[in-house]
Simulated assay, not measured.
Amino acid sequence: MKRNDPISHLMTRNVITVHHGDPISKVRALVREHGVHHIPVVNGDKIVGIIAWSDILRVSFGDAFNTDERTVDATLDHTLSLEQVMKTNPVTLAETGTVREAAEILAKSDFHSLPIVSGTSKLVGMVTSTDLIRYLVEQF
């Protein structure tokens, strides 16, 4: 197994993001449109937070009651800001990191996505637990 492979071999480069100040409804739309479960929050090209689908579910009780999507979006957008729901200062890995380092971080954490950064927090990619499992399967 290639434990020292650079994380750049595994990471997604064209990351779906939202911008600091965007409404929560935008996150919900991106999840539905792209099927992603973790979306970095950026200010310019720097990561300032991350929001997961589970974060949205935690605050959108309407999803549990089959409420109209527009009603859920409007309620969330008028009661909460993205900054109130997202996790700030997410754990990141430098683009010079390895697959092993990413696996160690995700194995010891209670989150399932790892933003990959260049320099001082410039978002350049993303790795998820699922990416690591797929990588592992390819090794056998």
Rank of each mutant, 00 (worst) to 15 (best):
Arg58Gln: 13
His20Phe: 14
Thr130Lys: 12
Leu80Pro: 01
Gly97Thr: 05
Ile50Val: 12
Gly119Ala: 08
Arg3Trp: 13
Ser118Arg: 13
Asp45Ser: 15
Ile39Gly: 03
Val27Pro: 10
Arg3Thr: 13
Val15Tyr: 02
Met126Gln: 07
Thr71Arg: 11
Arg58Cys: 10
His20Val: 08
Leu80Gly: 03
Asn14Glu: 15
Asp68Met: 08
Val41Lys: 00
Ala102Gly: 01
Met11Glu: 04
Thr92Gly: 03
Asp77Asn: 08
Arg70Cys: 10
Lys122Gly: 01
Ala102Leu: 07
Asn4Cys: 07
Val15Gln: 05
Leu82Arg: 00
Asp5Trp: 11
Met86Tyr: 05
Asp22Gly: 03
Thr96Ile: 08
Lys2Cys: 08
Ala29Pro: 04
Ser81Tyr: 04
Ser118Asn: 15
Ser60Tyr: 11
Val15Met: 06
Phe140Gly: 14
Val124Ser: 01
Asp55Glu: 05
Thr75Phe: 15
Leu10Met: 02
Ile24Met: 06
Ile39Met: 01
Val117Lys: 00
Ser129Ala: 12
Thr96Asn: 14
Leu30Tyr: 09
Asp55Trp: 08
Val18Leu: 03
His9Lys: 15
Ile105Phe: 09
Ser81Gly: 13
Val59Tyr: 06
Gln139Cys: 08
Arg100His: 15
Val27Ala: 05
Ile7Leu: 00
Asp5Ile: 03
Leu132Met: 07
Leu76Ile: 10
Thr120Ala: 11
Thr12Pro: 12
Gly21Pro: 00
Lys46Ile: 06
Lys122Pro: 08
Gly35Arg: 10
Ala52Gln: 05
Leu10Phe: 00
Ser121Pro: 03
Asp45Phe: 11
Leu10Trp: 04
Pro6His: 12
Val99Phe: 03
Arg3Ser: 12
Pro23Arg: 09
Glu95Thr: 06
Thr128Tyr: 04
Leu76Asn: 10
Asn89Glu: 15
Glu33His: 11
Asp45Ala: 12
Gly62Phe: 00
Thr79Ser: 14
Gln84Ser: 13
His37Val: 11
Val41Cys: 00
Lys122Ala: 09
Ile47Arg: 00
Arg28Gln: 08
Ser121Lys: 15
Ala64Gly: 13
Pro23Leu: 10
Lys26Gly: 04
Val15His: 06
Asn89His: 15
His19Thr: 15
Thr79Trp: 08
Gly44Lys: 14
Pro115Glu: 03
Leu10Glu: 02
Thr130Arg: 14
Ser54His: 12
Thr75Pro: 05
Pro90Val: 07
Thr88Cys: 08
His9Val: 14
Val31Gln: 07
Ala74His: 13
Val48Trp: 05
Ile56Lys: 09
Gly97Ser: 06
Leu82Met: 10
Ser60Thr: 10
Arg3Cys: 10
Leu82Thr: 04
Val15Trp: 06
Ser81Leu: 01
Leu93Asn: 05
Gly44Glu: 07
Val31Ala: 12
